[in-house]
């Protein structure tokens, strides 16, 4: 069997339609919304702020805490049980690792920057959407960053390399999903996970395609941040 046409009719390297907005939560220090297809990520950043409990404080640098949360009726299939799960904890951790290389919190010892990402509606690619939204919100909070991380999944469905998988493709029996986060200006990869099986050559191709698509997402991020300042009356 070969995968002739994607389930939603996109080209194989076509990203779902994206939209982004910065500064959506007035009480947060920084905030952003990122939508890709039917996946929506809302992110609020608080901090740098006082860190308690005190044993977590690091006198050398501020720390980053990420909270990833999928809302109960956000996805396909079963209701997600509210509150943390093993999955959300893992994703919070990989998100932290994906964002931290771009952040410089040395000027804020003993403090914490809290990143909260909620996903009210999901259609696969949530960790990527969450990282993309978090990067915008961190920039909106005025933090020092060397780059603006962005993330996208690539993968395999049967014999084809596809970019930005939706839930149907993600859960397809013969496939593979590879979320990739990059720092678009240096090309560093800060997140690379894989779920499924793929050949060595296809893996290389998939990562290449993801990095290429990441640059499109970076443009959307950049525009959203700039637009947040352009308005007025």
């Amino acid at each position: 069997m070969t995968y002739h046409k994607r389930f939603d009719g996109r080209a194989f390297d076509e990203v779902r339609p994206m939209s982004a907005q910065v500064g959506i939560i007035p009480n947060a220090d920084g905030s952003a919304r990122f939508q890709i297809g039917d996946t929506v990520a809302l992110c609020a950043v608080y901090g740098p702020r006082d860190l308690h409990p005190r044993f977590l404080q690091n006198p050398g640098t501020g720390i980053l805490r990420v909270h990833y949360n999928m809302l109960p009726f956000s996805g396909h299939g079963d209701r997600v049980r509210p509150g943390g799960s093993r999955r959300s904890k893992e994703i919070s951790m990989v998100m932290q690792n994906a964002l931290l290389p771009a952040l410089n919190l040395k000027a804020y010892p003993n403090t914490v920057v809290d990143v909260f990402v909620d996903l009210p509606q999901t259609d696969a690619g949530t960790r990527c959407a969450a990282i993309t939204a978090a990067a915008m919100a961190l920039a909106d909070a005025g933090l020092e960053m060397t780059d603006l991380p962005c993330a996208i999944a690539a993968g395999r469905v049967e014999d084809k390399i596809v970019v930005d998988l939706n839930y149907e493709e993600d859960s397809f029996h013969d496939g593979c999903d590879i979320p990739v986060a990059i720092l678009p200006n240096t090309g560093q990869v800060t997140l690379l996970q894989m779920d499924g099986e793929i050949s060595r050559d296809m893996l290389k191709e998939a990562i290449g395609k993801a990095i290429e698509a990441g640059k499109k997402i970076y443009q959307v991020q950049k525009e959203a941040i700039k637009n947040s300042f352009a308005k007025g009356e």
């Binding site: 771009a102 960053m145 060397t146 603006l148 200006n185 950049k222 700039k226 352009a230």
Partner: peptide
């Protein structure tokens, strides 16, 4: 002009 982190 307004720039974002990482912009050259």
């Amino acid at each position: 002009s307004i720039v974002v982190p990482g912009e050259v």
